[in-house]
Design a protein around this nucleic acid. Structure first.
Lengths: 246, 246
DNA sequence: CGACGTGTTGAAGGAGCTCAATCTAAGTGG
DNA sequence: CCACTTAGATTGAGCTCCTTCAACACGTCG
């Protein structure tokens, strides 16, 4: 992140990766009223069932969304990093249907719902960009359904690592070769629908096969092609760039 | 479905369940240019990788979206019935990131992408409604991740049955007690991340416990509360009604 | 130091898978 | 109307991937 950037620049950059905005659109996004708050790791930004009247956008750190089953187990449904808007849905829904929690300490911009709704009315291109953003979200959700539904544990884990690597690199937070993985094995388990114990074994399997190297929370991908192959990963579902929408 | 309805009425009804439209919005939706086509069961409406320049909306019958893994297994990521727009995402993405296939024979309205894009520009309320529709889609995807990731086979199956029952009833296609289930056990397996054999056993388990009764492809839910309990089901994620968005 | 969160390891059990056979219902053609 | 085919449902048996439980290791932080 360049210093001197406007506070909301990461959000703008994220939107501009998938959408085209003009100068007026850009200015009105950067000028959104907001309150920047630092949250500690593990803080709840939104709880399932909350009435929400502001929108959270991640300026730094990592967060995730999750749901609890009635039996008490937890499923992480998405991971988020800098630039991600965490709850556009809450903008239009009244009540949160899932929780959002920080993974690391995070800087979060809290934007009043009304200001965003006004922006959407005034700036169709921004509305369009936000919509596209939720569509990309949807695409990632679909891939996650496939991942937990139809891939075995090792493949699932490799897939998740690949996704994180690509997204981190896209956002300029490390190379696809080497990045910080701020998830505990328990959290990795909740993201992959496994148990922490099995995550541990699967990580060992990937490590022993030389696909990755781990030191604490840092992951090195030794051979991208091999890991992508092991994870049945192809990045199209991330819709990383603007596509031709004639 | 009332006879004499405009052809696109089911789509309008669906949108109006989650959003508020005025008379002009309504008219412009109903006046969308389109071609109505009948597809046989099992027809591909969209294939992963296709360039798409029209949008499919279901007027009758059942369809589903799915992705294939590199290992050849299939995961159904969502079910669709009358009134559902099957590929809004393709409206904004250039290339389909998953396939859409009919389950039964279907009447499908094919709407040119350009017409829809123009509608979105001209009618902010319609754009808003379509966006909300994709947000509801997203919410359902999240619940499916939870279902496949964290619930055991029996619970998963019961959950899917509950979802279908609620959605069918909402759309006026049968009561929540009794409805047609047009999925083979193989397709149910692909929707739940199980195998057809195990789906069979789980259905037997639900039947033997008296929760449901099956005859061919028709399902009767004997005790809604019990099935919902067995399926860890609560319908909030379907966002069935307009919520207060002040 | 002790407590706690996280990672690691082992052993045992089970939920769900695989494979393969059988059954049923609904065509389809003669 | 019957022989034949075929898609789907059902059943059994064996196996395996992943879970569960429980112990221990390690680092950090009060």
């Amino acid at each position: 992140m360049q210093t001197g950037d406007p506070v909301l620049a990461p959000i703008l950059r994220k939107l501009e990766r998938v959408s085209t905005l003009d100068e007026g659109d850009r200015q009105s996004i950067l000028a959104l009223p907001h309150r920047t708050t630092r949250f500690e790791a593990g803080a709840h930004l939104v709880r399932e069932g909350d009435r929400v009247d502001q929108c959270c956008a991640l300026l730094s750190g990592f967060a995730y969304r999750h749901k609890l089953t009635g039996r008490g187990s937890r499923q992480i449904v998405s991971m988020h990093l800098r630039g991600d808007i965490l709850d556009v849905h809450n903008l239009l829904f009244g009540v949160a249907d899932h929780s959002v929690q920080t993974l690391t300490s995070c800087d979060v911009a809290l934007i009043p719902k009304k200001a965003l709704l006004r922006l959407i009315e005034d700036r169709p291109a921004v509305a369009h960009a936000l919509w596209l953003d939720t569509l990309v979200d949807g695409s990632v959700f679909r891939e996650w359904i496939v991942n937990v539904g139809r891939r075995d544990a090792r493949t699932r884990m490799a897939h998740l690592l690949c996704e994180l690597a690509v997204r981190l690199e896209t956002e300029g937070l490390g190379s696809a070769q080497q990045f910080e993985l701020p998830l505990t094995q328990e959290q990795l388990a909740d993201a992959t629908g496994l148990t922490a114990v099995h995550v541990n074994r699967v990580l060992q399997s990937l490590t022993n096969d030389g696909l990755i190297t781990r030191t604490k929370r840092s992951v090195t991908i030794n051979d991208w092609d091999l890991l992508a192959e092991a994870g049945d990963f192809s990045p199209a579902y991330l819709h990383p760039v603007v596509q031709n929408v004639d």
